[in-house]
Design a protein around this nucleic acid. Structure first.
Length: 479
RNA sequence: CGGGGCGUAGCGCAGCAUGGCUAGCGCGCCACGCUUGGGACGUGGAGGUCGCCGGUUCGAAUCCGGCCGCCCCGACCA
């Protein structure tokens, strides 16, 4: 009776569990009045803000500068790169009327900004001295989706898109891989989400790119999540938008470009990597609430005493840059515990009459079962140490899960059995033929997530057709 | 775009095949009391143009017609 809207257990229905966690933690809700759209609520947006701050710092540290380009893109721009328009046209929102009048040229609501940025790069870049051009944009984009899932796929989403131009392919490729490393480092060290860095197959690459690279994570249901992409655009957009520069030798050449992005989808990945049946679990580096302190009392005198100590401890913790809430609402303690667990507070501290006597407090980490009693004297240090420990433990646990879910498969039957059963990553040989890849997808809904970078080269036979192969790729169901 | 479902209080639903008086229930919300070391309880209370438009009828949440919207399942995607 006490429980309001229970969270569906993961084992029973994973997608339902996912929605429940988002609702229980008050991260977001479907907009309902707009098809496929969502409202990111303060608890969810706070996570995005931390993601932004961390990434933005890393982008700046690698020499990039932020800029902002228009939301609307002339439809003709999209059409300048053949593969690009073909890839995106099914999911475009198009503006046909402005100010009550039919537009002379229709505007596309950006699904991504390569084209409009290409247009401006052409104006901004004249000589090799203007290169490299290193730009990032924080923006919203719209892709008209049939199938929506909160954070993972909505018709409008928030993201960051880096766009750079270089004098040589060597340089642009280096940039592409550098940003992939930035993403991977961020995913693991901030989100505590282990990822595989890899190269996309030609079927899976970005429309208009020469080669796409990605980081892939494994969610708790064994599905893969593409958490970030970095594209080597070659000279495709340079040629489409006539982005030329004069070389040192005085010759005119097209620039070599890259683009790379991560989106609010990361929040979905965060949820599906760490959370449990009790609700959200968030690594301290991204958590909205680090510590919640609940005073325990039986009468007004105890209330005053425990609340006073709770406030003092809260102040000490806040001084160490932790986000702390003293929950002194007139509710039963148990109800508060469940609420903060749902919302993903990293730790809970209880301070009751017995603690005042012993000059200690009760400490419970969100990701661990046990509750421990900590002397008030070293209390702050203990909490700080536990935040670090939790950050590390979450990554270790997620990595162990990912590794256990990654299996070498040398036969088609073996791979199929894994994909139809527990899922996870199937590491298997592939001949490199897109037809084989398509066949696999047709039969099992499984796709090649990536060809891991630094892949060991070994002789083998394609798991589908038996033709010779030099390396293994990762197969998985994906979002 | 094909298949299915739904629209009644903030949320979840009942009521509707057989029209009828003042439209119910659970949770949540507000007030007061009592409680507070893992989801308490009592009493009182607020809250609805029944998705929209039209029709049938003395009378429509309920029957008929149209429209709109959203969700879920399939082909595409960060």
């Amino acid at each position: 009776m006490a429980e309001q809207s229970p969270i569906t257990p993961r084992a029973k229905d994973f997608p339902e569990w996912y929605q429940d966690v988002i609702r229980a933690a008050d991260l977001a809700e479907p907009a309902h009045v707009i098809k496929g759209a969502m409202v990111i609520k303060p608890n969810g947006y706070a996570i995005w803000e931390k993601i932004q701050r961390e990434l933005d710092t890393r982008f700046k540290a690698t020499g990039h500068r932020n800029a902002y380009f228009p939301l609307f893109i002339p439809e003709s721009f999209l059409k300048k790169e053949a593969e690009h328009v073909e890839g995106f046209s099914p999911e475009l929102a198009v503006v046909t009327i402005g100010g009550g009048k039919e537009l002379e040229e229709r505007y596309v609501v950006r699904p991504t900004s390569e084209t409009i940025i290409g247009h401006f790069f052409a104006k901004w870049i004249q000589t090799h001295r203007d290169l490299p051009m290193l730009i990032n944009q924080w923006a919203n984009v719209v892709r008209w989706e049939m199938r929506t899932r909160m954070f993972l796929r909505t018709s409008e989403f928030l993201w960051q898109e880096g766009h750079t131009a270089h004098a040589t392919h060597e340089e642009s490729l280096k940039e592409t891989l550098q940003m992939l490393d930035v993403y991977a480092d961020f995913a693991e060290n901030v989100m505590a989400m282990p990822v595989v860095k890899g190269r996309k197959t030609l079927n899976e690459k970005f429309a208009g790119a020469v080669m796409s690279y990605c980081i892939e994570g494994m969610m708790q249901n064994g599905w893969a999540l593409q958490a970030g992409t970095s594209h080597d655009l070659g000279q495709n957009f340079g040629k489409a938008f006539d982005v030329k520069f004069q070389t040192v030798e005085g010759k005119s050449e097209y620039v070599w470009q890259t683009s790379w992005g991560v989106s609010t989808r990361l929040i979905g990945g965060l949820i599906m990597t760490h959370s449990d049946d009790a609700g959200l679990i968030c690594p301290p580096k991204l958590a909205t609430y680090h510590v919640v302190i609940v005073p325990i009392f039986k009468n007004d005198a105890e209330r005053a005493a425990t609340t006073e100590v709770a406030r003092r401890l809260a102040a000490d913790l806040k001084a160490k840059d932790l986000t702390v809430v003293v929950d002194d609402r007139d509710e039963r303690p148990g109800a508060k515990y469940f609420e903060w667990e749902r919302k993903g507070a990293c730790a809970r501290i209880e301070i009751g009459p017995k603690d005042l006597e012993k000059n200690s407090f009760a400490f419970k980490r969100r990701d661990l079962e046990k509750k421990e009693f900590v002397p008030m004297s070293g209390g702050v240090a203990h909490v700080l140490a536990q935040m670090d420990a939790m950050q590390g433990d979450l990554l270790r646990r997620a990595r162990a899960f990912r590794d256990a879910g990654t299996k070498r498969q040398d036969t088609w039957d073996g791979l199929k059995a894994q994909m139809e059963g527990p899922g996870g990553f199937g590491s298997a040989h592939w001949c490199g033929d897109g037809k084989c890849e398509a066949q696999v997808k047709e039969e099992t809904k499984v796709t090649i997530r990536c060809i891991p970078l630094d892949n060991p080269q070994e002789a083998g036979a394609c798991v589908r057709c038996g033709r010779p192969s030099q390396e293994r790729v990762l197969f998985a169901r994906s979002y």
